[in-house]
Design a protein around this nucleic acid. Structure first.
Lengths: 170, 170
DNA sequence: CTGTTTACGTCAGCCTTGTTGACTTTCCAA
DNA sequence: TTGGAAAGTCAACAAGGCTGACGTAAACAG
């Protein structure tokens, strides 16, 4: 393998896209793009006294309602103590509800309240706005490539989390 | 409005790639990929008692040797107090050298020492390793798309910084 | 020459968000 | 029934953002 994976037709076999300079460019692209990626939701969060950690929690609770704290932990890759602090403020502020498990009373199942869902929507919409614009500018083929490269860049464990919630409905 | 910008040939006019689900997938791809992106250098840094902030400083000093503190500040988008703390430890540890400007003596020009350059190489090599693997897996066309989307996602100001240091030789 | 601006550094203090360690409560298995 | 494992909470610490205030030296404008 290594022979340029799919190597469609553009670059061909010369592997020009693997030069150190190209790789450095990719690294810096990730750095600058990630800043843009988080900028819009950050503004909304700041106005309410929250940080990125709150955003992440809200996002993943929304994605899978009724999730336990442990599941969420695995997604986020932080310690339970760290998550707990964020979670506590969200619960106090009435954005998240934590229900004791019916089968296993050690577990807490997490849900967004109406207010939580509203904040989630506004955060996601802000982030989607930029993503949508970028997608539109770049076009569908570029988007496919974008997703392929990102997926290949993930740690295998995280990639499983990513893939676990499949594309659209199906 | 919004009639699909470039819309090359693949997805066509249906704009399937702009559904909310596709956008959510893109958002999560960014999130998980960025974790992978920083994981390898983070391990090296931790062993030496440094953090990501040190990595960023070293990276950008290397990219443009002799840069002033102010220029670096603009790249990194942090306050001078924040940068200074990091910079001070790097200078104390002999990884970075700060020379008073010859023309304008108020300015400090930043350089990596031999030790600094060595650390920079090991950090970059770690990060490039993953990037290279991802590029190879995805292929040159995907890489082009990846870069296009990332670039479109940047804030215009940051995009200028990104573009200012052009691709390889040329 | 004088006053202002610029570039840089520093001290102090705050906040978010990561960490480890110690502790309860609950479940389950020997 | 008892002991360990698992889920979650509390406490304390560190990194690295931030603001604000201040100091110094050099440059520049009048």
């Amino acid at each position: 393998m290594a022979e340029g994976g799919g190597a469609g037709s553009a670059g061909g076999e010369n592997l020009l896209f693997l030069t150190d300079e190209q790789l450095r460019k990719g690294i810096e692209a990730m750095f600058f793009a990630y800043r843009g990626f988080t900028a819009d939701p950050d503004r909304i969060l700041e106005a309410r006294g929250y940080g990125r950690a709150h955003h992440r929690a809200i996002h993943f609770i929304n994605r899978q309602e009724g999730q336990t704290v442990n599941t969420l932990l695995a997604m986020l890759g932080v310690t339970k103590q760290s998550l707990n602090r964020v979670l506590r403020t969200l619960i106090e502020d009435g954005l998240v509800e934590s229900r004791v498990g019916r089968k296993d009373k050690r577990e807490r199942h997490l849900f967004l309240t109406e207010a939580g869902r509203a904040l989630e929507r506004s955060l996601t919409e802000a982030q989607r706005g930029r993503m949508r614009a970028a997608y539109r500018t770049a076009g569908p083929e570029a988007v496919a490539g974008f997703r392929q490269v990102l997926e290949a860049m993930m740690d295998p464990d995280l990639r499983r989390h990513y893939q676990s919630m499949k594309d659209g409905g199906s």
